[in-house]
Design a protein around this nucleic acid. Structure first.
Length: 470
DNA sequence: CTATGGCACGGATT
DNA sequence: AATCCGTGCCATAG
């Protein structure tokens, strides 16, 4: 199979600006790919979109010559097909009879919905940029003046928009730091009820100590008694979150509050067959457009009649269009094969729990699909998958070596009656056939936000996970 | 003395 | 080549 990296150097020169992106189509997210394609279509008259053939019985677009994967499902392999989001569908393709998988609104959409109405056009485009920059936790990683420089907008205006964002629903979004996010949340809580004494001060100056459970130190430096500090700590734990983007709105599944990717679009959706739950999975991979692109034959014909510089100029466009077409097919093809492999390999994980994730490396999959391993890396990074239970997870998670063990640790701790030490957890895991070092259990614990044994005894039925370090 | 976190090393992964 | 991950060693707190 021709590998993307092999594209001839001659062409590489032709399309400088776009080519770098073309080479890495695989690593673009759904939205980015969309945007890229739109701009390519707009700037290249040689490109045209052709309607796909559709399956005669279900009217689903057929991307490959051959049978419709839904109407003629393969026997053992997963059923994989490309599909286009409803807004971009060409004709009125019938809505599918596929089982519903929750497709939540993105965090950015949610926020834009709140602030959009109050903003004028310029402010809105600033907001759009800012929202796109929010990280997984809903925090703003870049100071307003930098955004302003990038946008060529006045810093004051950018700040104004940012402040508008910060007043929005998941309290704390758009904050520049964890501390700021917490403080904003406090303000929002203070409007409705009272906030225990010391909470603000602890957030502002003693977060580190709080994370380590050093109540005595805090009490001393704030001149409070220990009870007050504990009360404040409890309040913080229950009411505040350092990850504003993850929680608060849209009561999704119980897990959702800790899943930052929930509010991003998925690039593929895994489902079970409604009438054949034990059969192969169905995988829907999203494509930026229904149908496919090609070089407009009339345009090409027209170019042939030109001469000299004119001809050169438009020929470049034709070459570029050819390349775009090729790369698009190439990347979609790999994506489909990747999806299929994942559905097959990680079926148990997709249907079940984290614990059932099989260790799988990118390199291994690359060998199997006969592509370069960097190809897999690109395809996997920056993408998300929707699972049948409605969760949206980063596709990189399919390659997480320790996820299943971390899940075991989590359940060991939640089932414990007498707070276990890391060493004890090691031996419990040993019995279940998992052999890891004590130090490693400690790290997993930290990753899961589980406090050390000594700080774990107290409250058990609390649903909030305490984790406050950056 | 036990439990745990920090640091750093080496090997695997990307 | 850069980064990530599991681990061992050591310091520190209780």
């Amino acid at each position: 199979m021709a590998i993307l990296q092999r594209a001839q150097p001659r062409i590489r020169q032709v399309t400088t600006a776009h080519l770098t992106q073309t080479m890495s189509l695989l690593e673009l997210s759904r939205a980015e790919l969309n945007e890229w394609l739109n701009s390519s279509l707009a700037s290249n008259p040689a490109l045209e979109v052709v309607e796909p053939e559709t399956c005669p019985s279900c009217h689903r677009p057929l991307y490959h010559s051959g049978l419709c994967p839904m109407c003629h499902p393969p026997k053992d392999e997963p059923i994989v097909f490309l599909s286009t989001p409803p807004s971009r569908r060409s004709s009125n393709e019938e809505t599918d009879n596929l089982p519903e998988v929750a497709q939540p609104v993105t965090l950015a959409d949610h926020l834009m919905g709140q602030i959009g109405p109050e903003l004028n056009a310029e402010e809105r485009s600033i907001a759009q940029y800012l929202l796109a920059r929010l990280d997984d936790n809903g925090l703003m990683p870049e100071p307003p003046f930098e955004s302003a420089r990038f946008l060529h907008a006045s810093p004051a205006l950018v700040e104004k928009v940012l402040h508008a964002i910060q007043r929005c629903d998941p309290p704390g979004v758009g904050a520049l730091s964890t501390v700021e996010a917490l403080l904003i949340q406090i303000e929002s809580l203070a409007e409705n009820g009272s906030v225990p004494a010391g909470v603000r001060e602890i957030i502002a100056g003693h977060l580190e100590e709080l994370a380590h459970g050093e109540f005595a130190n805090i009490a001393k430096s704030l001149h409070l008694n220990r009870e007050a500090v504990e009360e404040a700590a409890h309040f913080i734990k229950v009411n505040l979150t350092p990850y504003p983007g993850r929680a608060f709105y849209g009561a999704g599944t119980s897990r959702s509050s800790s899943d930052p990717d929930l509010y991003r679009e998925a690039e593929m959706t895994f489902r079970v067959q409604p009438n054949n739950p034990t059969g192969p999975l169905i995988v829907e991979v999203y494509a930026p457009l229904s149908g496919r692109v090609r070089v407009n034959p009339e345009f090409r014909q027209m170019v042939r009649t030109l001469t000299g510089a004119e001809r050169e100029k438009w020929n470049e466009k034709v070459e570029e269009a050819l390349l775009i077409d090729k790369c698009l097919r190439q990347s979609q093809n790999t994506l489909l094969r990747l999806a299929s492999s994942l559905a097959e390999e990680q079926r148990a994980f997709i249907l079940g729990t984290d614990r059932e994730l099989r260790p799988l490396t990118r390199a291994e999959l690359a060998r199997r699909l006969e592509v370069h391993e960097s190809t897999i890396s690109r395809a996997v990074s920056n993408k998300r998958a929707a699972l049948p239970n409605g969760r949206i997870v980063p596709i990189a998670r399919f390659f997480d070596r320790s996820l299943s063990v971390r899940d075991m640790v989590r359940s060991i701790v939640s089932d414990e009656s007498k707070a276990l030490s890391d060493t004890e957890i090691v031996s419990l895991l040993d019995k279940q056939g998992v052999h890891i070092a004590r130090r490693t259990v400690a790290k997993y614990r930290a990753m899961e936000g589980i406090l050390p044994m000594s700080l774990r005894r107290a409250q058990h039925s609390q649903h909030a996970h305490g984790r406050a370090t950056a």
